[in-house]
Design a binder for these strands. Sequence first.
DNA 1: ACATGTGAACTGCTTCACAGCG
DNA 2: CGCTGTGAAGCAGTTCACATGT
Lengths: 208, 208
Amino acid sequence: MKQVKIPEATIGRLSFYSRFLTKLENDGIETVSSGEIAKGIAGNSAQVRKDFAYFGGFGKRGVGYNVADLNRNIKEILGLNREWKAVIVGMGNLGRALAYYHGFAARGFRIIGLFDNNPSKKGEKINNLEIQDASELENFLEKNPVDIAILTLPGETVQFVVDRVVKKGVKGILNFAPVVVFTEKDVQVRNVDLSVNLEILSYNLNSK
Amino acid sequence: MKQVKIPEATIGRLSFYSRFLTKLENDGIETVSSGEIAKGIAGNSAQVRKDFAYFGGFGKRGVGYNVADLNRNIKEILGLNREWKAVIVGMGNLGRALAYYHGFAARGFRIIGLFDNNPSKKGEKINNLEIQDASELENFLEKNPVDIAILTLPGETVQFVVDRVVKKGVKGILNFAPVVVFTEKDVQVRNVDLSVNLEILSYNLNSK
DNA sequence: ACATGTGAACTGCTTCACAGCG
DNA sequence: CGCTGTGAAGCAGTTCACATGT
């Protein structure tokens, strides 16, 4: 295996593969072929094999892949063999929904702090975590190192909060507001945009 | 202008451009260059021009683009010059958050029905809409034609609901569960996956 | 003079097709 | 024989660089 650049699209698919494999594991299935994986995630078998080949290949020719092994390898590649600590800033409806969302914990992301700048929300409990006032953010991050900040904030306030959490060592940002975030380049930013997807739907529906 | 295939990536960017232009319109700015747009959405000016060129080009050489004109054109391309009617099925935390989300209405997507199969939620009001029992879904869709179904459901139930709404004429699906949806090909499906983005963050943070 | 519009070059990702191996 | 692993081909999207138009 030579060390080449991994397409970001491949990383995204690894995440799908892993969840599909977890389902297979739960069903007690031990072996799976690239074709079956492709069917499970609506992809193409050559692509599945190529994706794995970037990391050296995990299969047996003529047989397929061992489900548990493969899943363990993928999780390790994705960095899911450790726990990632995250905070959510902005406890509006979306922030709350994410605080309750089980999918994160199931994949190793632990939410350890919730913040909002509205004093009337302070102390409210969500999933055994108390909402803290946004002014506590720096203080909290100093005592509790955090890897990722999930920002469910109005667009105007996002950059301000990004600067604050980055200064306290946060290295990953998951931003839900439709604004561009600027940071040092060693900080990873991912944007989730709810409207874009509806607008692509709109375009596709319209041009039929 | 010749009719060529438009990259899906271009459509996604049009959505960003439009929101950036709306901001400029609100600030009373009348003219903008491809370079300024590029800065606003963290892109590249050649790409901005190429994106517009797919649709014939909207600018004046030596000057730039008229903000209001350009935005109107983009919205028309995206199909946002009409109202799209949508329902949300699955009123868990995420479904509720989306029901409250203002961003949809601001872009012409009107939520006209909320459904859940938990009888205890029936009648509860969110944003002036009553949650209806899932058994009412077909009945409602017959009386109220709907373009898009937003599905915030557990993965296991998604396909069942997709089949039901598609049978009643829904042509667009926005699915938030990490499962593959199968439909006739004239139905558009978009998937929003919250965990994938965290896992890509995890990968990128891990490989530093 | 200046910013658009665009062919051409480039880069990156996907699909093909088959050699290699269990 | 079957399914993986992989070079090579093919395709799609991005960036370059400049001719074009105002």
